[in-house]
Nucleic acid binder design. Structure first.
Length: 395
RNA sequence: GGACCCGUGGUGUAGCCUGGUUUAACACGCCUCCCUGUCAAGGAGGAGAUCACCGGUUCAAAUCCGGUCGGGUCCG
């Protein structure tokens, strides 16, 4: 099956749309949320569980798989799908984001402050940058063993082709927030030059390749980047450089400026976004695909998704008040966790540091988000997207 | 009846022998906050102890000495 995308239904009151994405490993009905499986596994879950909770496609990571176990190892074991026993579509990130996220320095990362991405000026005292950006590519230091590596656009595509993903992403420079206009422009221009090199390196046309819009939080840059990426001969586009520390308003502005310049007939992926309100907003603006670590990462930290009145949509299940709660995490949830376990039990598992806790919470959170996007898709089909949005967000 | 061990925040311990560098440390627990293309079963911060009690030695005691109470082990 070759790659194709078709818009099936366009919402009349917004830019929301329903589409069908065909890939060599099956069909994805959009809009769709994809769980993140960085190291060839969605942490704590089996592919069977992923399938059961409704995941249509997952994301894997070039940076991590290149470092461990190595793309050649995975290729020799039959490619990523076979390696991890996931038969459905896979999108691979290019490694750009990770390479730059390491650039902020070890200490900040150790402190959990790593959302300012790719700041090359960063020689503040002992905070040595772990990566160096040049025209040819990025030289970085492995977080695993300190060895030095270089990613170029060509290298990233080569790795992704060996992994055998259905959707490859271009090697881009994800700008940090806040970035000056000058720097954001330089990074965007570099990303555009790298885009051509990615296309040239792209030899296996069974796999598709998506370009990535950059440009920081600047209107002129976003518009320019969106137009540039839109005109590339690739089957899809991504909007990147969001959810890197900017405000929600900034993110919305970025979508506002970028999307009108993107082609109607190509799928649009919004990188790294997964907050409920953000997903509603993005789908309303015409985004088709999402990926985000939040359901799994927050799940492992004991935060479970709920539909609440405060529009926070999550609660910390490890809090004492949940120790004797007999009810499931969320009334009406059809996930495996909610069908079989009480809040009190999952609470206990977290307190006891039992491994099942991570799995049950991840299953719930992923099912919650996948199902919500399913409902959004259904509502678009029926012309009721606005009603669903109002029901959830109140606006 | 005899010998020995122990008594430090909610829990479990470290420190005690070689008194001061202890504003008494650590783990877990508790409370706040954070997490959006995962270096993330992670991170930041906070509350909480008159070191069982009484007395003594000393410039100075959780730390040394005596006694009391409480818990435990072993021997009869």
């Amino acid at each position: 099956m070759r790659f194709s995308f078709r818009v099936e239904k366009q919402d009349t009151k917004s830019n929301a749309r329903v589409g069908i994405l065909k890939t060599p490993h099956g069909v994805v009905q959009t809009p769709s949320f994809m769980p993140v499986g960085t190291k060839a596994t969605v942490k704590s879950l089996t592919p069977e569980e992923l399938k059961d909770l409704g995941a249509q496609i997952i994301l894997g990571n070039t940076y991590h798989l290149y470092l461990q176990p190595g793309h050649k190892v995975i290729a020799s074991l039959g490619g990523l799908h076979s390696f991890m026993n996931w038969k459905k579509p896979i999108l691979t990130d290019s490694g750009g984001f990770q390479v730059f996220s390491l650039g902020v320095g070890k200490r900040k990362v150790a402190q959990g402050i790593h959302r300012g991405i790719g700041r090359p000026e960063s020689s503040e005292g002992d905070e040595k940058s772990l990566c160096e950006i040049q025209e040819v590519g990025v030289t970085f230091t492995s977080h695993l063993d300190g060895t030095t590596h270089t990613f170029t656009p060509e290298k990233s595509i080569e790795i992704q082709q060996q992994l055998g993903s259905d959707i490859m992403l271009m090697f881009d420079e994800c700008t940090y927030f806040p970035a000056t206009h000058e720097y954001a422009k330089a990074a965007m221009d570099r990303t555009h030059r790298w885009a051509s090199r990615c296309i040239n390196a792209w030899t296996d046309k069974e796999q598709s390749l998506f370009g990535i819009v950059q440009g920081g939080v600047y209107r002129d840059l976003r518009e320019e980047s969106a137009r540039f990426i839109a005109h590339l001969d690739t089957p899809g586009v991504c909007i990147g450089g969001v959810s890197v520390g900017e405000s929600k308003k900034d993110m919305r502005d970025v979508l506002e400026w970028s999307i009108p310049h993107l082609p109607e007939n190509k799928p649009r992926h919004l990188l790294g976004v997964g907050d409920i309100d953000d997903v509603f907003d993005a789908i309303e603006r015409g985004i088709d695909l999402f990926d985000c670590v939040s359901p799994t990462r927050l799940g492992r930290m004991g935060h479970v998704f709920i539909k609440d009145s405060e529009k926070r949509f999550r609660t910390d299940i490890t809090k004492s008040l949940y120790s004797r709660e007999k009810k499931p995490i969320m009334k009406g949830c059809d996930c495996y966790t909610c069908l079989h376990y009480s809040v009190g039990y999952v609470h206990h598992l977290f307190r006891a540091h039992e491994l099942l806790a991570y799995r049950l919470a991840s299953i719930h959170n992923l099912r919650f988000l996948v199902r919500l996007v399913d409902e959004m898709r259904e509502s678009i089909q029926q012309g009721a997207f606005h009603h669903l949005k109002k029901e959830w967000l109140g606006t």
